[in-house]
Amino acid sequence: MLSRTADHLYWMARYMERAENIARILDVNHRMSMMPQSRIQEEQAWGATLRIMGLEAAFHQRYAEITPDNVLEFMIFDQDNLSSIRNCLRAARENAHAVRGTLTSELWETTNGTWLKMRDFTPEAFADAGAGEFFEWVKYRSHLSRGVTIGTMLQDEALRFIRIGTFLERADNTARILDVKYQLLLPAGEVEGGAADYYQWSALLRSVSAFEVYRKVYRDLITPARVAELLLLRVDMPRSLARCMKEVYTNLQRVRNAQSAETERQAGELEATLRFGRIDDIVRGGLHNYVIRMLARTQELGNRIADDFLVPVS
């Protein structure tokens, strides 16, 4: 397959996944803002959202203060914010458009249809319909595009690069969500949170569709360490780092070429680190440091994949 085609497929998947994750993050905050909380707490929570995406500086260039409305507008509609949901869905569609012949018509129409709807969506309509409904819609469209992908695409290279894009993006997003929330809720490196934080932790779980999963897996109280374990190390948890890396590694093996051996080795090593990792060790060494290292390795892996497959130098 053409390298440029693989590149578009990869980014199409990444942007769709990113849109979904942003919707998830915003949705949690939106739900939390309905709980009684102080002005400070509220600002912290919305500020954390911006930090997850690394967009604090960009936000403050455009808005004076962090309010729910400002953050929502910035993260959903802002034309200059490359990571706004609108721009993500647009980028997903532009990438799909560039390779529409490689996609099944169902997948192309789904991606195109999502963008057409988003394009016509105004902040007024958003205020009208309510935030919750909108976030549901974004998640639904992402589910739909993933379902159409798996349900209609030939299991060839094209699908592999789509999957690699999806899981690299998801690994990155899950790690960021966990990191920021951890810092917010356990500022001084504490290991156990207070009971008041129950809602915060359960909201975090809900943001990655893991609340019911948690109950099922642990059948016990929600503790920060278990949340971290679930989101980092549990291979059976579809949004955990361990699962994402397993998928990246598996798909990478299927597309290997003459120069990708080292990339494949690093992916395998990363996958094994997560598979054999223990949460106690991670907490002891500092979760933040661990996640930072994981993010760096994920990013390095993404760069290597680009060099080997997507934008070859020669």
């Binding site: 397959m1 053409l2 390298s3 440029r4 070429n257 003459a258 997507l310 070859p312 020669s314």
Partner: peptide, 8 residues
Amino acid sequence: FMRTTQGP
């Protein structure tokens, strides 16, 4: 030649 994921 064209540039592909499996080389030229």
